[in-house]
Design a protein around this nucleic acid. Structure first.
Lengths: 123, 123
DNA sequence: GATGCTGGTTACGTTGAGGTAACCGAATGC
DNA sequence: GCATTCGGTTACCTCAACGTAACCAGCATC
C-alpha cells in the first residue's frame, strides 16, 4: 500500500498530525531518559494542564508509542523510534529562535510602516 | 541565553509549536524541490483550504522560513534547515502507519471488552 | 468589454483543543 | 479516624483553528 500524507484522507496524515504536535514532542522527549510518573511529567512540561497531559498520554498509548503501568509511563520500541526526529525539532526550535524572533520583528515593523505610509494592501 | 522549550513562557516554545505542525510540514516539504505557486501548493496539499494555506504561508513568511514573490513561494536558507527534520516526520508517519493502525485497533477492542465485562474503569 | 483565471480577502459558522476548578478513589502517614 | 498526596476524571467554558462561500482586483484572452 502506498501511504501518502498529501492524500486527503490517507490515515498517515492523522499519524503525522499526532507526531507533529508540541505536546507529543515534549512528552516523548521527556521519556527518553527513562520511564516517568504522571507527576514528574506534569512538572517537567511546564504549563501543561492535567487534562491535556492525560489526553495526550492516552492518545500516545492508543497508538502504541508508550505504555502505562500504574501511573508510570515508558516509551515502547515504536515510541523510541520517534526520539531522533522529535529531538531534532527541539534542537531546531531552541537553536534558531533568535533568528526567528529577528525575522518577526522585521516583518511586523515593515507591516507597520506600510500602514503608516498609507499603502492599503500588499499585492 | 538558554532557550528551553520546557520552560512555560520561553519563546522557543512558540517556535516549536509552529514547526511541529502538519500544515507547516507539508508546505515546507512541498517547497523542497523548488519554488511553487499558490495554486500548485493548494493542489499538492489535498484538502487544505485557501484560508488555512494563506494563513500558514504568511506565518512562515513572518518567521523567515520562506519568501513570497508575487504568488510564488520559495524556502529561505532558514527554511531549508527544516527540510531534514520535517521530512523525517513524513517518513515516520508513512512508514509506521500500519503499526499505529494495528495498535489503535487493539487498544479500542480491549476497551470494548472491558466495557462488556462490566469493568467500570481502568485503575 | 465581457469572460475567466489566479491569488487572494472577508465574513461567518462550526469544531476541537485546551484551560480551570471541583471532585474522587486508593494508598500513605499520623 | 483524619488529612494528604497521587493520578486522574468530570463539567464547563473559552478561544483558536479550520471550513465554506462569497467576493474582489489584476491580468490575460477573445
Amino acid at each position: 500500500m502506498e501511504w501518502n500524507i498529501f492524500s486527503r484522507s490517507c490515515p498517515s496524515r492523522t499519524s503525522l498530525a499526532q507526531i507533529a504536535n508540541k505536546w507529543t514532542a515534549m512528552i516523548v522527549i521527556s521519556l527518553v531518559p527513562g520511564p516517568a510518573r504522571f507527576g514528574e511529567l506534569h512538572t517537567r512540561i511546564e504549563g501543561i494542564s492535567k487534562k491535556v497531559l492525560t489526553d495526550t498520554l492516552r492518545s500516545l498509548e492508543r497508538d502504541g508509542m508508550l505504555i502505562r503501568d500504574d501511573g508510570c509511563y515508558a516509551l515502547t520500541e515504536l515510541g523510541r523510534t520517534l526520539e531522533e526526529p522529535l529531538k531534532a525539532l527541539q534542537v531546531w526550535a531552541e537553536s534558531h529562535i533568535e533568528d526567528v524572533l529577528d525575522n518577526r520583528d522585521r516583518y511586523d515593523s515593515a507591516a507597520d510602516e506600510a500602514i503608516l505610509a498609507g499603502i492599503p494592501r500588499a499585492s
